[in-house]
Design a protein around this nucleic acid. Structure first.
Lengths: 229, 229
DNA sequence: CGAATAATTGATCTTAGTCAACTGCTGTGG
DNA sequence: CCACAGCAGTTGACTAAGATCAATTATTCG
């Protein structure tokens, strides 16, 4: 398997970052600020989409509630990402839930305004198309990894990806700060199995663990593990 | 888990079916017929997309080659479906491979002509957006099922879905005709495990097996199994 | 400070994967 | 038309990766 690593390391959902000043002004005229406290639900599977959310600051998880309430997390959003547009654009109920992992600052765009913006900024449609067709490849990759890679390699892969998601001005090293349960639900395993494996990684000098914080100390090996055939 | 069953039972990729006569004429002026014999590759992961394929007749599998060459199959395409447009639209290499399961008749649309068509039929962009945002929900569902459902339930689910994919004029009952290995690679298991489970299903009267052909005989129970929490 | 929540640890169990041998089917060439 | 080579499918025995259960210890937060 030539695991196209680049495909994982994506900066999707920063759809609006390609807009110029004029276009941004058109966008900004249509949004209203919205705050979510850590832990609060931004939208919920089964709910009716009323608009999309532009995440300005903070992190949020997108997930689906599976068997016995166990969450399967697909992505950790951060500043710059657009959230909740899938359900909006296909006129269906939300398929996924989204919850704030930290206090979040958002700009809300109502459905009506979103479509107005698509009309005023036609190339936004192409940006969406490009983003979603890229996203397809990412999800397809996720499925293959989940179906075929053993836990150890999945964990290595996700640690590398998450580090990228956590890198920012307040966290230059990309220290991963997630409850164990969430990390388990990203990797696709049980809390206990994740814990044991984290201990192993620590003992092997691959990571450094401080309570909830995970820092990657041997990127080289982790990358090799993650992309091992 | 409220498994949104409808989400699976989708008729995605029939993107062009919404076009009217005029629009169809514009499309037809841009395509050229192409035949693929059973077993031949239509496109391959890592290859450069040169256009999209409108499948007229026959079935094809879309998959990714994983560890030790094991394929992970995502979808079985059939007549009416559009193939290979993701890589084309995000200007990346193909992330997936596509292979004819039967002799296939296609209409090929070159990249240039595809974009020309998007220009001539602007609402096609919205149709693509709608389709792909729907598809997101489907893939997200697939991931959750794969990560959380036991094999027995996954098999039941995929049998129900595949039956729909196989229903057509030549096969009113939707008898599933796939090599065991392909079926295993859809469900996400090993050939041997699949075989054993098929035998169980047969003994429980859920399915009828004739060589390679699988007919569903107890839809009720299969559905219940597939959507069991 | 103490209750509630999260993480760790150990023991055990289960599912499904792997390995290996065997059977049967298919299609090709003598 | 049959033999046989080459796949595809089946079966059984064994193994291992992870899940689950249960108990304990840390952390967090009101």
């Amino acid at each position: 398997m030539t695991l196209d690593f680049g495909k994982f390391d994506f900066e999707s959902n920063k759809i609006f970052s390609a807009l110029n000043e004029n276009e941004m002004a058109l966008l900004n005229a249509k949004t209203q600020p919205l705050s979510f406290k850590k832990g609060s639900l931004i939208f919920y599977e089964g709910g009716t989409p009323t608009g999309a959310f532009l995440l300005k600051h903070g992190r949020a998880k997108i997930f689906k509630t599976g068997i016995a309430g166990k969450e399967q997390i697909f992505y950790i959003y951060r500043g710059g990402d657009l959230l909740g547009y899938h359900g909006l654009l296909c006129d269906e109920l939300f398929e996924e839930s989204c919850q704030a992992l930290e206090n979040c600052e958002m700009d809300f765009i109502s459905k009506q305004n979103f479509y107005k913006l698509l009309y005023e900024v036609p190339r936004l449609k192409l940006l969406l198309i490009k983003n979603m067709s890229h996203e397809f490849g990412v999800l397809v990759n996720t499925i293959t990894v989940l179906a075929q890679k053993p836990l150890r390699e999945r964990l290595a892969l996700h640690l590398v990806l998450l580090q990228k998601r956590y890198e920012d001005d307040d966290n230059l090293d990309g220290v991963i700060q997630l409850p164990r349960e969430d990390l388990a639900n990203i990797v696709g395993t049980a809390r206990e199995s994740l814990g044991r494996l984290l201990k192993e990684f620590k003992e092997e000098g691959l990571i450094d663990v401080q309570k909830r914080d995970i820092a990657l100390t041997d990127m080289e090996t982790l990358m090799r593990l993650a992309t091992a055939d």
